[in-house]
Design a protein around this nucleic acid. Structure first.
Lengths: 149, 149
DNA sequence: GTCAATGCAAACTTTTTGCAACTCC
DNA sequence: GGAGTTGCAAAAAGTTTGCATTGAC
């Protein structure tokens, strides 16, 4: 189920890309980060830690671009600040984010598919990308706000 | 129905803010921009044009912040690049954006309310903000892509 | 040996901030 | 007159780019 470092590395090679220490380390970080929301900076930090090799931030961005172009990676914005990234999974998901505490939950695409298709019928095009999160206020934060007033 | 420059200016004054040439010009631009998606830069350009007064970009941002804090303005991200802004309307709307051509349509909130509430029931919190657009591919661009392959 | 990939530094875009000067009330 | 606003310049954050050097194949 879970993608391994080797799978990613081999897949990269199969696509004609060269395998460098930086790319191997980034593959490892991505492979081990299932379900996590990592920024490009997170990825650099972890990749450097686990490989012991210095990797420039621009190299991380360029490698993430490659993964993105291959359709293996989703770039997502949960709010202001850096974008986050995660490997594309079999069952893709949208992101539901609390604009107060930043907490987020993943919503499998099939949960929103119906409405999105309906929007497609009415407006000529349906949301198909998970690039931007759906923003709201979580129950905890809503309760806090209610208590304060 | 449509807010006028004077309404905005008076409302600002009523809230205790001082009325300057810059603010008056920005109020005018906003009042005349219903249904338009304006960036902070657009607003500066128009405000300078119509008032003849030089206005710094930082002043525009600070004034937009005031409007935002008062809840009169929505900051929205339609994609990468600058955020856009529009006055809050009686019937609020979400933004449906084509990630290929950038075209966007407004979707009245009540069209998505049901699903969003349903998500709220299932995930503890419902989307309540229109801060991020819903991204998809419009019918025209989808057709183009289909033709090419 | 080639050409892709890297590191480095610099540019970039959008937005925010510190501060002295100004001006609205 | 005094606090709220402004312009200016600089910083900030995140990302992209140019270019000479390195290293994978």
């Amino acid at each position: 189920m879970h993608v391994t470092t080797d799978t990613l590395v081999s897949a990269l090679r199969d696509e004609g890309f060269r395998i460098t220490a930086a790319r191997r380390a980034i593959c490892a970080v991505l492979a081990e980060s299932h379900e996590e929301h990592l920024t490009a900076l997170d990825i650099r930090t972890r990749a450097v830690e686990r490989s012991g090799v210095e990797i420039d931030q621009s190299t991380v961005y360029r490698t993430l671009d490659v993964f993105g172009d291959l359709g293996w990676l989703h770039h997502v914005h949960l709010g202001h600040g850096p974008g986050i990234v995660h490997l594309v999974e079999e069952t893709d998901h949208h992101h539901l984010v609390c604009d107060s505490c930043g907490k987020s939950v993943d919503v499998p695409l099939n949960e929103v598919e119906e409405l999105f298709n309906e929007l497609g019928n009415r407006y000529g095009f349906a949301p198909t990308s998970v690039h931007f999160a759906l923003v709201g206020t979580c129950a905890d934060c809503a309760q806090l706000e209610a208590d304060q007033s």
